[in-house]
Amino acid sequence: MSDATTADATTQAAHHDEPTVRQYVEIAGALSVLTLMEFSTYFVEFGWLHIPILLTLMAIKFGLIVGFFMHLKYDTRLYTRLMVTGLVGALTLYGIAFLAIAEVPTLMGS
C-alpha cells in the first residue's frame, strides 16, 4: 500500500482507454446471453453440474459489470482492492459463521 501514492497517481491518465458505445452494447449482449443461459438451467437438467454452472455464470456476469460498467478494469487498483476486501471479507466471515452454525446440528444428530 505504501507505493500507492506514486503508482496510483498515474492510472488516472488511462481514462481514454474506456470502451466505446459499441463495446458497451456488446458487453450488455454478452450479459443477456449469460442471463439466458442461467434462465435455461431452470428447464434443462445438468445433474451435479447444475450449481457450479450457475455460480460460474454468476461470477462472469459479476466480473463483466464491475470490470467494464464500473470501470474497474480501467481505474486505479485501489478501487478494486476496496471491492475485493468487502467481497472476500463477506465471503470468508459469513462462510465461517455458516460452518460454525452448521457444525452444531451435525453434532446433535450423531
Partner: peptide, 11 residues
C-alpha cells in the same frame, strides 16, 4: 464470546 453457547468443538 460464544464458547459456552451452541458452538461445536472444531469452532
Amino acid at each position: 464470546h460464544m464458547f459456552t453457547s451452541a458452538v461445536g468443538p472444531v469452532a
